[in-house]
């Protein structure tokens, strides 16, 4: 993969030098150097500075590509996408890379439709890149939870490329995980907690939280009972503790119902994070 990148850079440099653009190849290498030493602001400043000196389409494509990469390293996704989108299709290699960088960053920004459009509208020059395209498109469907579309596309995974093979298997594993995931009902959780406080959390597999809910309700109930027996129903002590019990009891029911939603949200966030990392790594490995 490193060799592939070096060949790619080599081709670019040879092309630049052979077309009488030796100075530009120096500029290219210098901006890459600034990027390598994490001097991103200097890189952007320098590109801005030399922008008007290099007006050919290839040069502007290269400068846009470099800008996109610097913004990408700075995690400035919007500017990175904007810069990558300035690379024209005539600069085949960096154009294709730019499409992949745009698509993954759009996925991170949850602009899944843009990711899909970009990938679908591009036919890549190598079979590996086309396999990456299929993989990214399928993963994008998984992010949208369109499982049937994922299944259809993942059927085209060849597992023939070592750069992708593991990620393809992981993505299929993730899709099975999503399919097997059972969504809990907030109503059932609330109802269970109303019958026996804390059991709504047990239903969600939260044993510790359930026990804590059960214990706190029991503590207030016992204190209210104690006050009732010793001081009667009209005593301030009974009113305070029975009031506290009522607050805890109702809060527990409400909390059990809400926590189902929160857990579901967290599950989706974790799965999305895993999908995005799996989508991102092959692009980094191939083009960084």
């Amino acid at each position: 993969m490193i060799i592939r990148n070096l060949i790619s850079i080599g081709f670019l440099l040879v092309a630049l030098v052979s077309s009488g653009q030796g100075n530009f190849s120096k500029e290219y290498q210098f901006v890459q150097h600034l990027q390598n030493i994490n001097s991103y602001n200097e890189g952007l400043f320098y590109i801005q500075k030399i922008w008007s000196s290099y007006k050919s389409l290839t040069q502007r494509d290269t400068l846009n590509y470099l800008k996109g990469k610097i913004y990408y390293d700075q995690h400035d996704l919007e500017h990175s996408i904007e810069s990558f989108s300035g690379v024209s299709a005539s600069s085949l290699d960096i154009y294709e890379q730019s499409i992949f960088y745009q698509s993954i960053q759009n996925a991170y920004l949850r602009k899944f439709d843009l990711t899909e459009t970009l990938l679908k509208n591009t036919e890549f020059s190598t079979s590996l890149r086309n396999e990456v395209k299929v993989f990214e498109l399928a993963s994008n469907y998984l992010l949208k939870r369109e499982l049937d579309d994922f299944d259809e596309l993942s059927g085209d995974f060849t597992f023939n490329y070592y750069q992708l093979e593991d990620y393809e298997r992981d993505m299929i594993h993730l899709s099975k995980n999503i399919r097997d995931h059972k969504t809990k009902s907030p109503f059932v959780a609330g109802l269970l907690s109303a019958v026996i406080p804390g059991t709504g959390r047990y239903y969600q597999g939260k044993i510790g939280q359930g026990t804590l809910g059960l214990a706190s309700n029991a503590i207030f109930a016992l204190q209210a009972l104690e006050a009732y027996r010793k001081d009667g129903v009209k005593s301030p002590r009974f009113i305070i503790f029975s009031g506290a019990f009522a607050v805890f009891y109702i809060s527990n029911i409400w909390g059990s119902a809400v926590s189902v939603r929160i857990n579901e949200m967290r599950y989706n966030e974790d799965v999305d994070e895993a999908i995005l990392i799996n989508m991102h790594l092959p692009i980094r490995l191939l083009f960084d």
């Binding site: 503590i219 204190q223 009972l225 104690e226 006050a227 002590r237």
Partner: peptide
């Protein structure tokens, strides 16, 4: 004063 739950639980907590 014999309020064992109140003393033992609320007080201790």
């Amino acid at each position: 004063h014999g309020y064992f739950f109140t003393g033992g639980m609320t007080g201790a907590a």
